[in-house]
Structure formats: structure tokens, C-alpha cells
């Protein structure tokens, strides 16, 4: 029924004409599409775009917390921060924690997903426990690790002592504690471990979904052809899971790359564990040098843009397939 025509048996009223015009407008894709996208665009512009533009403006200026009037200083902040050993350490740590943790997560998540895809007694409970670290608020979870690895009261150390692995004349040395968060190598390992612990569940769930989506007839055909576990893994599962693996890794990378909670709660940057996000916070907010804090944080930007481009390409390729 076109606009302006009457409903069967009823005379056309002014209200009907208005209603029809409204319907007609909402039928136009050119109008409806942008209209539906508008809330999302407004949300992104306000909560992502504006802060990003502000951070870029701050990083090229001399703003401090107490005086946020912008005077442009060009690249001075970037030049100043790249020279500092603290920044160089933080940059290295950011990439190290992200790359190493995600490589390990990828391997472990594949194994875990295959275990969870199999049928066994208590599977639901195991799945629930596997997902638990992801559902716990990150600050709370890291606080738990902080207590577990406490320098004085660590229950982990107590277990090691009771097992005869820690203390005078033992494998882990003469001291009564491991001091997990006090020495750079150990503290960095702990940060890495916590990142793995918290991103593993998400990757596992994503890969589990991918595994269950592999058609049964493909697996049956492989079995009939006599393909063993490794052959199926290398020639069937991994190639078919590759796109979804990439999604899992990219999510994990974004979460790890931008995280400051783990370092902030566990070490506050002690023992050479600062990452770009935590260093930016301490410099920009704790010390009031907002411009330098913004400059440090902006070093995350190119890597995140790269990851975003990869994700978009992947999404497009999946769509095309």
C-alpha cells in the first residue's frame, strides 16, 4: 500500500497520512541505516574519539593536572620520554608481556579446548572452573595473587617450605621466602603468569566454539582415511581454526597490551615491571605531568591501530568466506 491511500473501508484522515509518511521515511534505507548507527557512533565519538583526540592534543602540549590550558610544545614530550630508561623498560615489557603471554595462551588454549570438547565426567564443572578467572573482576583477581605471593605471608611459600623445597639446604635456596615480587626476573615472570592466567579462559572458550563448529563429516572422513591425532590436528583442526585463533589472539593482545591493573596492583612498577599504561598513569596522574603521561600512553596507539586493522581484515575475510 502506497502512502496516502486509505485502509480498507475507512476514510483517509490527516493522522493516517502523517503515519504513512513516517512509515515511508523509515522504509528508506538511506535514512534508517544512519539513524540506527547514530547511537553507536555517538557513543564511540564521546567515549573513545574525544578522549583520543584529547590525549593526542595533550601529548603535544605542556598541560599539567593543575593547569589544563594547552600551549603547544611540538614533539618535546616524546623526545623527553624516549630517552628515559624507565620508558625504554616499560616499552620492552609491554611487548614482552603481550607477545610471550599470547604465544603461551595460544598453545594452552588449543590443548584446553580439545580437552573440554571431549566427553568426560564432570565436564561442566571443569568448563565452569576454566572460565572462572575471566569472570572475576581483574583488580580483585590480582589482589588475590598479591596475597598468594606476599613477601611475608605467602601461602605458596608456605607450601614450598612444607614440601621441603624452600629453606636452608633446599632446592629453592636458603631463604624462607621466594620473594616473588622483589626481584626483576621473578616479578616479570609473575606478571606474565597472571596475564596468561586471566586471558586463557577467553581464548579457550573462543577456540572451543570453533572446534565444535568443525563439521562432523570432515572429522568422520579423516577417521575413515586413517588420519591419526597429529595428522588431524595439523591438516584439519589448525587450518580450520586459524581464523578463530586469530580472533582469540587479537583479543588477548588488546587486553594485555593496554592493561595496567596487573602491574599497578602487583608491583606498582617495582623490579622493572612497568608497562606503558602503568608508567603513563604514574607520570600523568600521580605526578601531575599530564602531557608526558599522554605522550607515553600514545606509544600504545600505533600497535593498537595495527591490531585493529588486522581484526577488521579478519572479520572481512570471514564474512567473504
Amino acid at each position: 500500500m502506497s502512502a496516502g491511500t486509505a485502509r480498507a473501508g475507512l476514510p483517509v484522515t490527516v493522522e493516517d497520512q502523517g503515519e504513512d509518511r513516517g512509515r515511508y521515511l523509515l522504509d528508506r534505507e538511506g535514512l534508517l541505516g544512519p539513524l540506527l548507527l547514530l547511537p553507536a557512533i555517538a557513543y564511540i565519538a564521546a567515549l573513545v574519539g574525544f578522549p583520543l583526540v584529547l590525549a593526542i592534543a595533550y601529548s603535544f602540549s605542556d598541560v599539567i593536572v593543575a593547569d589544563q590550558s594547552i600551549d603547544w610544545v611540538g614533539l618535546d614530550n616524546f623526545r623527553a620520554v624516549v630517552k628515559t630508561p624507565n620508558f625504554q623498560n616499560a616499552l620492552r615489557n609491554t611487548f614482552l608481556f603481550t607477545i610471550v603471554s599470547q604465544v603461551i595462551v595460544l598453545v594452552m588454549a588449543n590443548a584446553l579446548a580439545m580437552v573440554l570438547a571431549a566427553d568426560f565426567r564432570g565436564k561442566r564443572l571443569v568448563r565452569f572452573l576454566t572460565l572462572l578467572p575471566w569472570t572475576t573482576p581483574i583488580a580483585l583477581a590480582v589482589l588475590g595473587w598479591l596475597w598468594l605471593l606476599d613477601n611475608v605471608y605467602s601461602p605458596v611459600d608456605w607450601l614450598l617450605r612444607e614440601a621441603g623445597l624452600l629453606g636452608p639446604g633446599t632446592w629453592l635456596g636458603p631463604m624462607g621466602n621466594v620473594y616473588w615480587l622483589s626481584e626483576p626476573s621473578k616479578a616479570q615472570l609473575v606478571v606474565l603468569f597472571v596475564h596468561i592466567w586471566r586471558t586463557l579462559p577467553l581464548a579457550t572458550v573462543i577456540l572451543l566454539a570453533g572446534l565444535t563448529a568443525i563439521p562432523q563429516d570432515v572429522r568422520d572422513a579423516a577417521n575413515v582415511d586413517g588420519a591419526g591425532f597429529w595428522r588431524q590436528l595439523v591438516y584439519i583442526r589448525i587450518p580450520l581454526l586459524l581464523p578463530i585463533m586469530a580472533v582469540a589472539v587479537l583479543f588477548g593482545m588488546v587486553f594485555t597490551f593496554t592493561d595496567m591493573t596487573v602491574v599497578y596492583v602487583l608491583t606498582r612498577g617495582n623490579s622493572d615491571t612497568h608497562v606503558l599504561a602503568s608508567l603513563a598513569y604514574f607520570t600523568g596522574v600521580e605526578s601531575g605531568s599530564l602531557a608526558q603521561g599522554a605522550a607515553i600512553a600514545l606509544f600504545l596507539f600505533p600497535a593498537l591501530v595495527g591490531i585493529a586493522v588486522l581484526m577488521l581484515r579478519l572479520a572481512r575475510r570471514t564474512e567473504t568466506n
Binding site: 613477601n151 631463604m175 621466602n177 620473594y179 626481584e183 617495582n270 623490579s271
Partner: peptide
């Protein structure tokens, strides 16, 4: 002292 002083809050 012991190394724990490096990781204090």
C-alpha cells in the same frame, strides 16, 4: 636485609 625490601608496599 633480604630481597623482599625491593617489593614492598
Amino acid at each position: 636485609m633480604t630481597p623482599e625490601v625491593f617489593g614492598w608496599n
